[in-house]
């Protein structure tokens, strides 16, 4: 399991786990307004880093898109370092 970010306000905590296929779970305080944007940011980042077969959990406290992308990138880097 690899993590990046935090649960402070305007931040998000990303948790990555290995998985047989890609799963994305979003738990956001602003999910009713921004679920799709968050999902797209996650999908986009996974795609650009060429990552498949991970389970992504986004625990979001109102982070902007670039914060979500940055946190996910770091989680991926941390994962790559270990693999």
């Amino acid at each position: 399991m690899w993590q990046a970010g935090s649960k402070e306000s305007n931040d998000c905590l990303i948790t990555l786990k290995k998985s047989d296929k890609t799963k994305i779970k979003i738990d956001s305080i602003v999910g009713h307004l921004f679920h799709n944007q968050i999902l797209n940011a996650v999908k986009d980042t996974l795609k650009s880093d060429n990552i498949n077969n991970v389970e992504v959990l986004v625990e979001d406290k109102g982070a902007l898109d670039y914060t979500i992308r940055a946190r996910l990138k770091v989680a991926i880097k941390r994962m790559m370092k270990d693999v």
Partner: peptide, 14 residues
């Protein structure tokens, strides 16, 4: 690494 990436994406997208 978190700080570096955050500042980077902030600068690129804001």
């Amino acid at each position: 690494d978190n700080a570096r990436n955050l500042v980077e994406t902030y600068l690129l997208t804001t």
